[in-house]
């Protein structure tokens, strides 16, 4: 997995993983995403009061968590 940023490609989403995602097979990509998702459950307590989309960013009363933007 390359971790180098392609020359001249600024403003890219450049996680190490992102560089090869387009070249994975469906099975590889699915397995990868699933592993990431399972590991990401460990942070559920940290985003318990947050929203990712829509017209809310945090639950009322948790505005101190609102660090988007």
């Amino acid at each position: 997995m390359s971790t180098e940023r392609p020359a001249g490609e600024d403003d890219e989403f450049t996680s190490a993983e992102a560089n090869d995602l387009a070249n994975c097979s469906d099975a590889e990509f699915s397995a990868w995403w699933r592993l990431w998702f399972e590991q990401a459950q460990a942070t559920n307590h940290l985003d318990r009061h947050r929203y990712s989309h829509g017209v809310l960013t945090v639950e009322p009363g948790y505005e101190d968590l609102d660090d988007d933007g």
């Binding site: 989403f13 995602l21 990509f29 989309h53 829509g54």
Partner: peptide, 20 residues
């Protein structure tokens, strides 16, 4: 399917915990 999981579908990133 929209937003984060659509980004996943389009193979841009695997990092989305929610469905939209």
């Amino acid at each position: 399917i929209s937003s984060g999981q659509a980004v996943v579908w389009h193979r841009m990133s695997e990092a989305s915990k929610d469905g939209d």
